[in-house]
Structure formats: structure tokens, C-alpha cells
């Protein structure tokens, strides 16, 4: 006998369901397309448009479009388009790796605090608050000027000032989830604490953390631009912020030299925010309507 129960509903994982929700948010899809194009430019751009971006190629301050230089040249006569393409890779790398650092520290601290509670939580949360009340720009400037303005130091500095937000979100999620019945059921099944944290609770705590991490990429790019503008950057690497920083004195005479990389930053961060917003819709169960 064929029962209704025998007909299996189409098997869909929570992730394919989230993707479905994401697709319905048009702004997020546009953001994703823009972001993917920027990533594509960063990856294949240097191959399609070869040449060292630091080479002087033409007379300084050639306006965009003249002499075949689509974006013009900067104060040293460097091709702005080439700088922009190479800068995309640098800025995105900084954004993504700073987000990875942030999320790694944040999840570790938040998970331990939310899971173990008691004195572990006290110590870790006081530490989090300590980092939270530090003036972020000042603190990262101190780190970069003390340890040198290499890309790795800048990334670490950004990660180090940004993790408290992730730690707080993770802790809150852990505190909520650890009381749920399936965690008790897992305990009753003899699951070790380590597995309980990483295999049972963490996957369920991830959605808001993913959203936060996506937004982190955008704010890390902005943060790096800010540091570069103040001159705290690796002068041998062309990030977007570095282009703005090095041209800032000519902002009145040749405004395009700062506008062009500025717009690039603006578009990228906007795209990331749209994607983050879409992820929020897709992953937040409260907003998910069936």
C-alpha cells in the first residue's frame, strides 16, 4: 500500500534553503554580482592588463581618457587604472584576511565564554570589554607604527580591534543554544565538550556570525583605507587606500586621482553590505517566511 508518508518531500538542506531566500533579495544578488566582478578583476586583471603599476608611464596628472589612459595618471605619472586593478587584489586580500582573523579570535573567545560560563566567561568577557573600549583607530595606529607597516601587521591590527563584536554575538548564540534540548540530548548521548562546542552548537550559531563576517570584510577595507590615508601603509604595495593617501595633497588640482580609488572602495563596500544584508535575510530564521 502506498501511503502519503511514502512520498518523500524534495530533500533540501538548510543551506540550499538559505540560497533560495538569498536569491529572492534582488539587491543582494546585484551586490553579489558586483562583488564577484571585482574579485574577477582582482584575480585576472593583472594578467589582462600587465605591467608594474609603480612604473611611470606618462606625464603626471594626465586626465582620464587622454593618451589612452582610461583613468589618467597620478602625481608620479603612474597609470591609475593599473594601480586600481592591482589595488583591488590588495584591498580585498586585506579585507578578507582581516575578517578571518576577526572571526577566528571572536568565535574562540565567544564560544568558550558562552559554553563554559563561570570564571572562564568572566575573564574572557572582561578581556573583550577591554578591547572594546580601546579607541580602535588609535590602537591600530600604535600597533602598525610599532611593528612596521607590512600588510600582515595591518591585517592583524584590524583583526585585533574588531573581534569583540564577533565574540559577543558568538557568546550570545552559545548561551541560547546550549540550553536547547538537542544539546542536552547530545550530552545524554555521551558527546564530549569539544565536539559539543564545534560540531553541535557552532554550526547552529553560525548564521549571525557569517553575516557579521561579511560586513567585517567591508569595514576592514575602509579601515585599511583610513590607515593608508594617514600614511600608515606598506608603500611598496598599491592598495586603494594607499592610492588615495599618496595623492591626497593634489586633491584640489587633480581630484580624479582620489575620486577614482574612492569610488572603487565605495562600490566594493556597498556590494559587500548588500551581500551581508542578503545573507541576513537568508540565514536569520526570524525573517525567513515559509
Amino acid at each position: 500500500m502506498k501511503m502519503i508518508e511514502d512520498i518523500p518531500p524534495k530533500a533540501r538542506s538548510p543551506f540550499s534553503e538559505a540560497f533560495e531566500m538569498f536569491r529572492r533579495n534582488h539587491a543582494a544578488v546585484i551586490g553579489l554580482v558586483i562583488l564577484l566582478s571585482i574579485i574577477a578583476i582582482a584575480v585576472i586583471g593583472p594578467m589582462v592588463y600587465p605591467g608594474d603599476p609603480f612604473d611611470m608611464v606618462w606625464i603626471p596628472f594626465t586626465p582620464p581618457g587622454e593618451q589612452g589612459y582610461l583613468m589618467g595618471t597620478d602625481y608620479l605619472g603612474r597609470d591609475l587604472l593599473s594601480l586600481l586593478i592591482h589595488g583591488a587584489k590588495v584591498s580585498l586580500t586585506i579585507g578578507i584576511s582581516a575578517a578571518v582573523v576577526t572571526v577566528t579570535i571572536g568565535i574562540t573567545v565567544g564560544a568558550l565564554a558562552g559554553f563554559y560560563r563561570g570564571w572562564v566567561e568572566e575573564v574572557l568577557m572582561r578581556l573583550t570589554e577591554f578591547f572594546q573600549v580601546l579607541p580602535t583607530l588609535l590602537f591600530s595606529m600604535v600597533i602598525v607604527s610599532l611593528f612596521g607597516a607590512s600588510l600582515m601587521m595591518i591585517t592583524l591590527a584590524i583583526g585585533l580591534v574588531s573581534w569583540p563584536a564577533v565574540a559577543r554575538i558568538t557568546r550570545a548564540e552559545f548561551m541560547r543554544i546550549r540550553e536547547l534540548e538537542y544539546v542536552t540530548a547530545a550530552r545524554a548521548g555521551g558527546v564530549k565538550n569539544g565536539r559539543l562546542i564545534f560540531s553541535v552548537i557552532l554550526p547552529n550559531a553560525l548564521p549571525p556570525i557569517i553575516v557579521q563576517a561579511a560586513l567585517m570584510v567591508g569595514s576592514a577595507i575602509l579601515f585599511e583605507a583610513g590607515l593608508s590615508f594617514l600614511g600608515l601603509t606598506d608603500p611598496n604595495v598599491a592598495s586603494w587606500g594607499q592610492i588615495i593617501g599618496s595623492n591626497r595633497e593634489y586633491i584640489l588640482d587633480a581630484s580624479y586621482t582620489v575620486t577614482v580609488p574612492g569610488v572603487a572602495i565605495f562600490i566594493t563596500v556597498l556590494a559587500i553590505s548588500l551581500v551581508g544584508d542578503g545573507l541576513n535575510d537568508a540565514l536569520n530564521p526570524k525573517l525567513r517566511q515559509r
Binding site: 538542506s13 538548510p14 536547547l180 534540548e181 538537542y182 542536552t184 540530548a185 547530545a186 545524554a188 548521548g189 553541535v200 554550526p203 547552529n204
Partner: peptide, 16 residues
């Protein structure tokens, strides 16, 4: 081993 009162919440939603 033990089974609980609320079957709706006793299974981990992210695993099959």
C-alpha cells in the same frame, strides 16, 4: 540512553 519530551527540538537541525 534517553529520549526527551520535545521531539521537535531534540534533533540538531543542521544534520540529516
Amino acid at each position: 540512553s534517553m529520549i526527551f519530551q520535545e521531539p521537535m527540538t531534540s534533533l540538531n537541525p543542521v544534520y540529516t
